[in-house]
């Protein structure tokens, strides 16, 4: 008797669940369900974008300063990688609709390849942040003992950093020069030793009579009327916090996406999908494209701030 409901399950078309009358109803339900899921995902990331908006609008200079030390080349490359993976994903659906098993498998493999490349680049970037004391969490940066830091001036190559800027900004040049300088960091704290180029630039502008600092900045960067590098660093740390939470959550979504792709690959390999039944491919595609869209926004908002100030 416990299988009462189950006996209905596969009495109709293959893949039709018991609660539906026909395939069309099922596809429609699954499609609406997926879109509702995406809506909640958009608002999930939306909370972070709100946090970004609030802090960016209050401390634009610190955000520009911090952003200049993200490598826009890697960010841009990753954007392109994701776009290619989106294309291959769209083509997976295209071939699934045609019941072309071999091309489906190839396209899924390509999508997974580009997804993995994206994550690889993220690892390179995160490693660079780890080595440069830019992870905003106490103790999660590379620990450099006082004794190791004494070789100042020696050309110590910065590990994990492959700086290939297409156009070099003053900040990235300064960062390249800073590579020779090893700052002690025995406890692995967040540190900022790249100066305040953007702030100086803005103060220069202020001299011409045009107010350049926001009201929050007039309070937030100064102590007793003088510029306070520590308070400036705190704002920069908030940028890196938002950067890590946003890209971290995005990378988490990528990893989930890769798991879905692996499952899809197995299904496609077995020839599950046909012109009549390809909803799982389409739904996975929606998810993948959504993750791509998040990155389309993250790239300009995180990597490309204030680059014009400094080149």
């Amino acid at each position: 008797m416990s299988t009462h409901a189950d006996t209905h399950e596969h009495s109709h078309a293959p893949g039709l669940q018991h609660q539906f009358d026909n395939m069309q109803q099922q596809e429609e339900s699954v499609s609406i369900g997926m879109w509702m899921f995406l809506v909640q995902e958009i608002l999930f990331f939306g909370g972070l974008f709100t946090a970004y908006l609030v802090f960016r609008s209050r401390y634009p200079l610190a955000f520009a300063e911090a952003s200049n030390h993200l490598d826009a080349f890697w960010g841009g490359l990753n954007t392109l990688v994701l776009i290619v993976s989106s294309l291959t994903m769209a083509l997976t659906v295209f071939y699934a609709q045609r019941g072309n098993r071999n091309m489906q498998v190839i396209m899924i493999l390509l999508t997974m390849f580009f997804g993995t490349v994206f994550l690889g680049v993220k690892v390179i970037e995160y490693t660079d942040k780890y080595n440069s004391a830019l992870v905003p969490v106490h103790g999660l940066n590379k620990r450099i003992k006082e004794s190791d830091a004494k070789h100042e001036g020696e050309p110590a190559k910065k590990e994990g950093a492959f700086v290939i800027p297409l156009i070099e900004t003053r900040a990235s040049a300064a960062a390249a020069a800073d590579n020779h300088k090893v700052v002690p960091n025995p406890r692995g704290e967040f540190q900022w030793h790249y100066g305040q180029h953007v702030f100086d630039y803005a103060m220069e502008k202020e001299k011409s009579g045009k107010p350049y600092l926001t009201e929050a900045e007039r309070i937030g960067y100064f102590s007793n009327g003088a510029f306070d590098p520590d308070k400036y660093r705190d704002k920069i740390r908030i940028f890196y916090f938002i950067y890590f939470v946003m890209t971290g959550l995005h990378a988490l979504h990528m990893i989930v996406g890769l798991a879905i792709m692996a499952w899809l690959l197995w299904m496609a390999f077995r020839g599950t999908f046909s012109a009549e039944y390809y909803a799982p491919v389409e739904m996975s595609g929606l998810y993948w494209h959504f993750v791509d869209i998040v990155w389309i926004f993250l790239f300009p908002l995180l990597y490309l701030l204030g680059r014009h100030f400094l080149h």
Binding site: A72, G76, T79, L80, I83, L166, I167, F299, P300, L304, R307, H308, F309, H311
Partner: peptide
Amino acid sequence: TIFTYFSSFWD
């Protein structure tokens, strides 16, 4: 994407 990248250098 490429346009976004290079437009960030214009003031």
